[in-house]
Amino acid sequence: MPTGPTTRDGFLADCRARITFDLLSNTWNGVTLWALRDGPRRHGELRERIGGISAKVLTETLRRLEYNGLVERSAYAEAPPRVDYALTALGRTLLEPIEVLGAWGFLHGDEVLQAQDERPQ
């Protein structure tokens, strides 16, 4: 199993590790992946579960995640039409890193907020 970059230049533009940072740098990517962890969801269910995300931004996020192979979209020819979104096997591999980052936020979030309050604007 790869252990990561072994040189100081490990995060240069052509480094595969940057893909992860690019994917998780968008707030809604990680949140949407996490919201799908328990199984397929419809667009409206995801909006409700996530909170604070517009329909447009959720649609853009789901398309981006689908483009990157992390989410699959399943459309059903029903009346009314139904579309579900689910994590792919690749998408599931990001749940553990997202959980670790979330745990870090719970542990250190207050410290970050305090540092922000102490900085002059």
Rank of each mutant, 00 (worst) to 15 (best):
T7W: 08
G10Y: 06
G10A: 14
A13Q: 12
C15G: 10
R16G: 02
R18E: 14
T20W: 12
T20A: 12
L23A: 03
L23F: 05
L24K: 03
S25A: 12
N26S: 10
N26C: 09
T27P: 12
W28L: 05
V31Q: 10
T32I: 04
L33R: 00
L36T: 00
G39E: 02
R42K: 07
H43G: 02
H43A: 06
G44E: 06
G51M: 02
G52W: 04
K56R: 15
L58W: 10
R64Y: 15
R64I: 09
L65A: 04
E66S: 01
N68G: 10
L70T: 02
V71K: 07
S74E: 12
Y76M: 13
Y76C: 11
A77G: 08
E78Y: 13
E78K: 15
A79C: 13
A79Q: 15
P81D: 14
P81H: 15
D84C: 08
D84A: 10
Y85Q: 12
A89C: 07
L90W: 02
G91R: 12
T93M: 07
L95S: 01
E96L: 04
P97V: 05
P97R: 06
L101F: 15
L101R: 09
A103F: 14
L107Y: 10
L107W: 12
G109P: 01
E111N: 06
